[in-house]
Design a protein around this nucleic acid. Structure first.
Lengths: 236, 236
DNA sequence: CGCATCCTTGACTACCGTCAATTGTAGTGG
DNA sequence: CCACTACAATTGACGGTAGTCAAGGATGCG
């Protein structure tokens, strides 16, 4: 994730989607983590199972091998907010704080490799490249959070959904016209976009009516008019 | 900024506000930057002057000496979003990207010390403490962004204002009952909270009517009932 | 002291949330 | 394999919160 997103926003001329930022994360850390591979523990989680909880001691980090994970918080009044979704290749549970700021839950069946945080830090201490990769990861997460902040602060329901779909297609490296998998349910999308499940449904229905997306099944989409989707996401 | 905010949210029993997280940022970096002091340039900016622009080459970082700065983005459709406000002691313009992701503008008259990014990186390369401070700064910014994400995603206008005021009082180290300075205008607050200026005004008027805040002047507040304000911010 | 800017308040509107009912889907067991 | 069930998604009707438009009041700078 270098300038990928800037390009996607500022120079949105091409018909196909811009290069993924998820990939660079993988490349950055993946190869260096080989040194840790022996110390990692592989774990499986079923749908909706918790990988770690909000407030858990942050002594472990997880590299997602497969599946989709939601990173969420619960407010005192019981409302839920999903900060982000993580997929294969993403490292989660990594922060500077002694406790996890988010819970991680399996949206689909998930396989992760868990490392002791101390091992990772040891590796970072010894290997400057790992260290800078971790820093880049933080920076990438920060940038993603700020982008989402702008989405929630400035956009209406339809625009938020458009932004979300484009971002998802980007991460999944799905080209325009291809089948885009939606691993998460409508409620997850709603809690991520600061909307209700009904509003998400209506926004999807509206995009469908406008022939901007096709909806073969509830968990599969085809972005049939990416230009219009981009225009929406930019509020034009 | 270690667990300060968690404490503020989870164990909100005390009458006075929780310890500031802004302070630790200062302490972390301030002393190490002494080594750079000679290489820094001091600059002054008047109200609404731009310190750096969105998309500017990120070859310089600024330590704020005095005044308040807004960090904002503009969408293609002309809407503005203020990600955060920065005050004395904060380091801004520091990211992993080649270009600034936000514009920095002076809310009040501002004095900053500008350093070449390369100098900072050189210092970080030589001094592990500086390196880890910079990483902590990124992590603190990430945490702050995620907190704000939750505010925008889950809270209504009154709750957002309550969260904002508590956060501001925290950063300014203003105790309950003391005079809290509001350097930014209503429009800035609105663009930060994803509201309109009218809604911000009405939310303030509502808090005033509920005797939760006193409003001596438009730019000064007294949090007269912090307990109620916290309850609001938590959505109770 | 005057003017420009910001703040505040009111009336009206629109978008989104809430509640409710129906349809669709996936997983289970006979 | 199919029926059953539980859950998820969808759609409709309605109401409330916040946005829009507009006007008046306060504030601060020159």
């Amino acid at each position: 994730m270098t300038t990928a997103l800037r390009v996607a926003h500022d120079e949105c001329s091409a018909l196909d989607l811009s290069p993924s930022d998820a990939t660079s994360k993988v490349n950055l850390l993946g190869e260096h983590l080989r040194a840790l591979r022996a110390t990692g523990t592989r774990q499986h989680f079923g749908r909706n199972e918790q990988i770690f909880g909000e407030g858990d001691p942050a002594d472990r980090v997880c590299m997602i091998v497969s599946g989709t994970v939601r990173l969420c918080r619960h407010t005192a009044s019981g409302r839920r907010h999903i900060s982000d979704f993580a997929a294969a290749g993403d490292l989660i549970g990594f922060g500077e704080r002694p406790h996890q700021s988010h819970a991680a839950e399996a949206v689909t069946p998930v396989i992760v490799t868990t490392y002791r945080r101390s091992n990772l830090e040891q590796l970072a201490g010894a290997n400057p490249k790992v260290r800078s990769s971790l820093c880049s990861l933080l920076a990438a997460n920060l940038f993603a959070a700020q982008r989402q902040l702008c989405v929630l602060g400035c956009q209406n329901a339809k625009e938020r959904l458009a932004s979300f779909l484009l971002h998802l297609a980007d991460r999944m490296q799905t080209q325009a016209g291809e089948l885009l998998n939606l691993p998460m349910g409508r409620l997850d999308i709603a809690d991520h976009l600061g909307l209700t499940i009904e509003t998400v449904c209506r926004a999807i229905a509206a995009l469908k009516a406008d022939r901007i997306v096709l909806v073969p099944t509830a968990h599969q989409l085809i972005l049939s008019n990416v230009v219009a989707l981009r225009a929406l996401a930019q509020g034009v």
